[in-house]
Every structure is written in structure tokens, then in C-alpha cells.
Simulated assay, not measured.
Amino acid sequence: MALSNKQHNQMDGMIGRLYDAIRAGEVSRERAIGGLAHVMAALDIGNTGEAVAWFNQPGVEFFNDALDSKEE
């Protein structure tokens, strides 16, 4: 399913928050890459709901939390 214009705007917001967090040292390069790969994979398999959940997070917690759970 294609993303709606609203979802594209939400994605833009997530990318902007991520960029700001990287610059502020809140998210590492590796975690940003891993998180974006996770979102891209969700979209690739048609899991739009998962991707939109990432788009709509209030900050960038998913970029740290999702990778923390994989490292345990």
C-alpha cells in the first residue's frame, strides 16, 4: 500500500527529528542506520502500520529502544 500524503509528511517529520537527534548526539550513526533500515524493511513487506508507528513517535526513542532489544 502506498503512503498517503499525510504519512509522507509524518515520515518527513521523523527524518527531521532523527537528523536533529544525531546532531545533538542523542542517536548514534549506527542506531540511525539500523532504525531507518527497520522502517524501510517494514515498508518493503507491506507493514505500513509499523512504519507509521515510527513516523508518529514523539521523539526518536524507537531508534534507541528497538536496537537495545535486539542486543539483549
Rank of each mutant, 00 (worst) to 15 (best):
M1H: 14
M1A: 15
A2V: 12
A2I: 10
L3E: 05
L3K: 02
S4R: 00
S4D: 00
N5D: 08
K6P: 02
K6W: 03
K6D: 10
Q7E: 14
Q7K: 03
H8A: 05
H8W: 10
H8F: 09
Q10H: 10
Q10I: 04
M11G: 04
M11A: 06
D12M: 05
D12R: 03
M14K: 01
M14L: 15
I15D: 02
G16H: 07
L18S: 01
L18M: 05
L18Y: 02
L18E: 01
L18W: 01
Y19I: 08
D20W: 03
D20E: 10
A21W: 03
A21N: 02
I22Y: 09
I22G: 05
I22F: 10
A24M: 10
A24L: 11
G25T: 08
E26F: 11
V27P: 00
V27Y: 00
S28D: 11
R29L: 14
E30M: 12
E30Q: 15
R31K: 15
A32K: 15
A32R: 15
A32M: 15
I33Y: 14
I33Q: 15
G35V: 06
G35T: 08
A37W: 07
A37H: 14
H38F: 13
V39F: 00
M40V: 07
M40Q: 12
A41N: 09
A41G: 11
A41Q: 10
A41Y: 11
A41P: 02
L43A: 08
D44V: 02
I45V: 13
I45N: 06
G46M: 00
N47I: 09
T48G: 01
T48S: 08
G49T: 03
E50Q: 07
A51E: 01
A51Y: 01
A51G: 04
V52T: 02
V52Y: 00
A53C: 06
A53V: 06
A53W: 08
F55Y: 13
N56P: 01
N56W: 04
N56I: 02
Q57P: 04
P58I: 11
G59M: 06
V60W: 04
E61W: 06
E61N: 09
F62L: 13
F63E: 01
F63Q: 01
F63W: 06
N64D: 07
D65M: 05
D65N: 07
D65A: 10
A66S: 13
A66Y: 15
A66P: 09
A66W: 15
L67Y: 08
L67M: 07
D68N: 08
K70E: 09
K70P: 03
K70I: 06
E71N: 12
E71T: 11
E72Q: 14
E72M: 13
E72R: 12
E72T: 15
E72Y: 12
E72W: 13
